[in-house]
Amino acid sequence: MTGTDPERPWRDRARRITALWPTMVMGAALWVLLWGDLSWANVLAGVALGALVALAFPLPPIGAAGTLRPGPLAHLVGRFVSDLVVASFQVAWTAVRPGPTPRGGLVPVPLRSTSDLFIATTAGLSSMVPGTVVVDLDRAGSTLRLHVLDLAGSGGPDGVRESVRALEERLLRAFATRADLVRLGLAEPAGGPAATPGKEGQP
């Protein structure tokens, strides 16, 4: 919207279309996967569809992740896969074993991060870790409300809070910028632990 040039409207339009390139690349990749055949026709049709979807259904920007650290990312993905398997066995066993439905409850979990991207990703991932499903989300207070299937079996409300915050920490360590990590108390500042140690990290 900024920098509109009335003399050259085509330049403005061209800039708006080039800003769509991530969606166009995604569209092309999806379309090629869908047809299972890498050809120019498929790539071009995918690019056109990606642009069309982005123009027809515009979404507010969610903000970009800072960086990508391969080691913590592998840790995050590995824990996610093992958590998904463990969670599925737990829930499957709870479903087929004899006896009544276990006592569940709602637990609010305050998160460290205030970025929409990290809150949304934490919410999505925590729907798949053992025993929890996100029911509600307070974006202003960055608080998730989780439902726990078996509250006693998950270590009570404190155990649930602990495990979701550990999940968020793994996510932040994989993607957040160093400045964010320092601000949230997850890393030492570059010049050593000089400035207000541990103040920001208090829950």
């Binding site: 969670a87 829930v91 499957a92 479903a95 439905t101 569940g104 798949m128 499903v133 029911v135 439902h147």
Partner: peptide, 15 residues
């Protein structure tokens, strides 16, 4: 088998 909405949601989300 589960007797409430949220327990059913758990089943749909994971296994």
């Amino acid at each position: 088998r589960f007797d409430n909405l949220f327990a059913r949601v758990h089943v749909v989300a994971k296994p």
